[in-house]
Simulated assay, not measured.
Amino acid sequence: MLTPTPTIEKPSNLVAFAFLLIAFLTGIASSFQLPTLSLFLTQEIQVSPAMVGYFYAINAIIGIGLSQILAKYSDKMIDRRKVILYCCVLAIGGCLVFAFNRNYYWLILLGTTLLGLGSSANPQSFALAREYADNTGKESVMFSTIMRTQISLAWIVGPPLSFSIALNWGFDWMYSIAGLAFLFCGLIAVTLLPKVPRKKMEQNTPLQAPSNNQKSVIYLFITVFMIFNCNGMYLINMPLYIIHELHLPAELAGTLMGTAAGLEIPIMLLGGYLTQYFSKKALIFTALWAGFLFYLGLLFFQNTWQLVLLQFFNAIFIGIIATLGMLYFQDLMPRQAGAATTLFSNAAKLSWLVAGPIAGWLAQFWHYNTVFYVSFLMIAIAMVCLMKVRTVN
């Protein structure tokens, strides 16, 4: 049973290490599941492409609904560590369902429900990290930024490792190892994370943004949603565009993803540092312009080295929003770190409901690179919405 240990009783270096390790392990678990899911469904369950699409859509809907409910509940709890622990236990159950069950409907109902609840361990750890930093006087922006880099680091090593395990050992081993990562997360939450004191008034505060920030939260949600829509369409169509239209090696897709993930780490750190001199809003505008240049370049550059160089702009586009976007939500929703962090996470999840159908429809009737033109429109919408978001720093 978790005890109400005061924050100051745990060494700050140990606490920081625990937060970073949890971020990395939850990143590893997600990087095992998402990249291999379509392969798992087609090879192990042997369903049609349409059924694969339905699975992704239902998975996103369940994950969004459950995580948002859990986020509101977590902001009422005195000890957020318990929420992280419960999420890890549920995620382990979800991994075991995927490891040892091959019934499509059991997976889509029970497996996705457990993993949908369990996936909240990641945003809940970020919420606790923000509360810990605020209560101890630490610099919250850089602390959260460094945590976010651990997820990028996990996505550099996770996808190649997951494919290797799944293809050589089997999906049961792959999902079992993902469950083991969640097990370690739960143990770390119990033993190493601090209990952050929470004010009584916070428990009775309605779980919504202050009235002067509510519209800003909506516009910021749309901004983040549009950015991740662009990224989702790119990730879906880019491998097929490289193979079928550019006639380049299929391995190049993995190289581009790994390059972008690697470049995101220093960009995230730099973005966190620059918040001392520029507002988060200004830095996100910079990211949007980088995204515009990235998709413009994809329309004209077709050589391997050019596509690799373009990943610098892609890393700016995604790296900044992935870190500062979450912190911006937290700034606009004070004393509701769990709901704010999950709202950011759900904006990314919701984008897959739109990105998938759009990418498939455009590729079927036009070309794979047509999504790059649509991305210009989405970036323009994101810019307009961001202009309406209140500057909080």
Rank of each mutant, 00 (worst) to 15 (best):
Y54W: 13
A133S: 14
R102D: 11
K82E: 05
Q46N: 14
M77E: 13
R81K: 12
L96D: 01
K72N: 11
S162W: 07
L66Q: 08
G118Q: 00
A166H: 12
L128Q: 03
L167Q: 15
W155R: 08
Y86G: 03
F143N: 00
I64W: 01
C88K: 02
G65E: 10
L96K: 01
L110Q: 02
I84Q: 00
L115T: 12
N101Y: 00
A99W: 03
I92G: 05
L161Y: 04
A127Y: 11
M77R: 11
K72P: 00
L115Q: 08
L167N: 15
C95V: 07
M51F: 14
A121S: 14
Y56T: 05
I84W: 00
G94K: 02
T113S: 12
V141G: 09
G158C: 11
T149V: 07
G94F: 04
K72M: 08
Y73V: 07
C95Y: 09
I108Q: 03
L109N: 05
L66I: 10
R80L: 10
D134H: 10
I92F: 07
I146S: 08
A129I: 02
V157S: 12
F55M: 07
A91L: 05
D75N: 03
N135M: 12
S164W: 15
A57I: 10
L110A: 13
L117T: 08
S67M: 10
N122Y: 15
I64A: 12
G137I: 09
T149K: 01
E139S: 11
G63S: 15
I62E: 03
Y56D: 03
L90S: 13
F126D: 12
C95H: 06
L117F: 14
I45E: 06
N101V: 14
W169H: 15
T145V: 07
T145C: 01
T136L: 08
I151E: 07
Q46K: 15
S74W: 08
P160M: 07
S140M: 11
G137H: 08
I64S: 07
K72T: 11
S67I: 05
I58G: 01
F143M: 05
F98G: 02
A60D: 10
L110D: 01
E44H: 04
I64K: 06
P160T: 10
Y105R: 02
I69Q: 11
S144Y: 03
I108T: 02
T112N: 08
Y54V: 12
R81Y: 02
